[in-house]
């Protein structure tokens, strides 16, 4: 495949779309958005195929385009968070623990532990959905890709101070969200 006239669109979709969707989902955890970005990726790929150098595999090239689109989506997203960030520091007299009853590390996992972990995972996924998109992107870059701070700051065009504040605030929001769920 060296130019547009030689593209086998059917093969492109059949061979790569599901892989790209899984990749996008691992970062975004949002199926509709992931599908949209995969479609955008394939459109970009067929319109820019002449820039594809066969030094890498087609799938690697497609994944790099998708990755760029995901970062662009997060970077352009609104970051303003208008709700009070957290009541954590305002709670006089409370010791500060909020996750004591959940997620204790255990060497032997019982069925109850496993159910509890799955519940926690679902609740965490729901709480992650409440973060502003840009924060989600920063969190995904840190915990999924384990990028260092320099790379994350470059991708998201933020300063290192912004990065620590985002991680700190994101954890406080997640903490409040989980605590609210467990108090219900």
């Amino acid at each position: 495949m060296t130019n547009n006239s030689e593209i086998d669109v059917n093969a492109l979709v059949d061979d790569h779309s599901d892989y790209l969707l899984s990749f996008a989902m691992s970062k975004l955890k949002d199926l509709d958005l992931a599908k949209d970005l995969v479609q955008d990726t394939l459109v970009s790929a067929i319109t820019k195929l002449e820039t594809f150098e066969k030094r890498s595999k087609l799938r690697t090239w497609l994944t790099s385009i998708l990755n760029r689109k995901i970062i662009d989506h997060w970077r352009k997203a609104e970051t303003r968070y208008t709700d009070p960030v957290s009541s954590f520091f305002q709670q006089e007299g409370k010791p500060g623990h909020w996750l004591d009853s959940k997620g204790k590390n255990k060497t032997l996992e019982t069925i109850e532990d496993q159910i509890s972990r799955e519940e926690t995972n679902m609740e965490l996924a729901d709480c992650l959905g409440k973060l502003p998109d840009k924060w989600k992107g920063v969190v995904a870059s840190k915990y999924l890709e384990e990028k260092d701070s320099e790379e994350i700051c470059k991708d998201f065009e933020i300063t290192s101070s912004n990065l620590w504040v985002i991680i700190h605030r994101a954890k406080l929001v997640l903490r409040d969200c989980l605590q609210n769920k467990w108090e219900l």
Partner: peptide, 12 residues
Amino acid sequence: ERFAEVDASANF
């Protein structure tokens, strides 16, 4: 753990 999960059901 959450981000390490691969959603195998994510298919078109």
